[in-house]
């Protein structure tokens, strides 16, 4: 399979994994391993002064995985920029998954604020991977100002509803000159395969793995689905037809026709 290249860095795996919602650091580390991923997302939060030793991320081997800090919790561009700068100061990593979600109910991204924050962060030298609604025009704008990818949502974060924005994602894939990473809402390996078959360059999965009855096996299932979907895309899916197209030859010797 082709390598995925983002901002000059190559990835063999096209599955990105989020590290939220895991029952324990041990399960998280095992699931990340089983997924074959090379890119994991992390978030920033205040230290719990009363439980300062809780450091879940020490379970992640940073030599194996590109850490992708996100700006989750940001409700506008200023907050997102602040979080991105903090993440860089904390880790030295200048990659950021930019997300601005002012509405806590659906967690849909604010395109205007995302574009504003992206402009600032790109100028400051960040590799910006913006989380967006499946809006082809916004995707184009973000690409034009120098974002490294676009990350359209399949359905709301953590909803497991799958590719509800499929038609718009297809337009984004058709027009994009940067990698398209389908993010959010992929609830089953078949959803991930569907995105990859369409030509998405990668997918990001968190909830569906972390909250599965067996997260480690689910991570392995997503790995296979992403690989199968990508392979099918590279192999070239045949066209659809509204009528049957016989697979066996219809020789006429049974009847005189």
């Amino acid at each position: 399979m082709d390598l995925l290249v983002i901002a000059g860095k190559s990835f063999r795996s096209r599955l990105f994994v989020g590290t939220g919602k895991f029952a324990s650091a041990t399960v998280m580390a095992a699931a990340i391993d089983a997924s074959g991923t090379e890119m994991v997302t992390v978030a920033l939060r205040r230290v719990d002064i009363h439980n300062p030793c809780d450091n879940m991320l020490s379970a992640i081997d940073r030599t194996r995985y590109q850490l992708l800090p996100n700006t989750s919790g940001a409700r506008d561009a200023a907050e997102a920029v602040r979080l991105a700068r903090l993440a860089r100061a904390a880790s030295g990593i200048h990659w950021v998954k930019l997300e601005v979600t002012p509405d806590p109910y659906y967690l849909l991204p604010d395109g205007t604020e995302t574009l504003k924050a992206a402009e600032i962060l790109v100028k400051e030298g960040f590799v910006v991977l913006p989380y967006i609604h499946a809006d082809p025009i916004l995707a184009k704008r973000l690409q034009e100002i120098g974002c490294a990818t676009v990350m359209p949502l399949a359905s709301p974060i953590g909803s497991n509803q799958g590719m509800r924005t499929k038609d718009s994602i297809a337009i984004i894939i058709e027009q994009a000159t940067v990698p398209v990473v389908v993010d959010a809402g992929l609830g089953a390996p078949s959803h991930a395969a569907e995105a990859m078959e369409m030509g998405a360059d990668a997918v990001l999965v968190n909830t569906a793995i972390a909250t599965a009855a067996d997260p480690v096996r689910m991570a392995a299932a997503f790995k296979q689905a992403v690989e199968a979907g990508r392979l099918a895309y590279e192999a070239g899916l045949p066209p659809k037809s509204t009528t049957a197209q016989a697979s066996s030859p219809l020789t006429g010797f049974l009847r005189n026709e």
Binding site: T41, R46, L57, L67, A90
Partner: peptide
């Protein structure tokens, strides 16, 4: 403000 990385998607 004292901030650290935690799990996130």
């Amino acid at each position: 403000e004292l901030i650290r990385f935690v799990g996130g998607g």
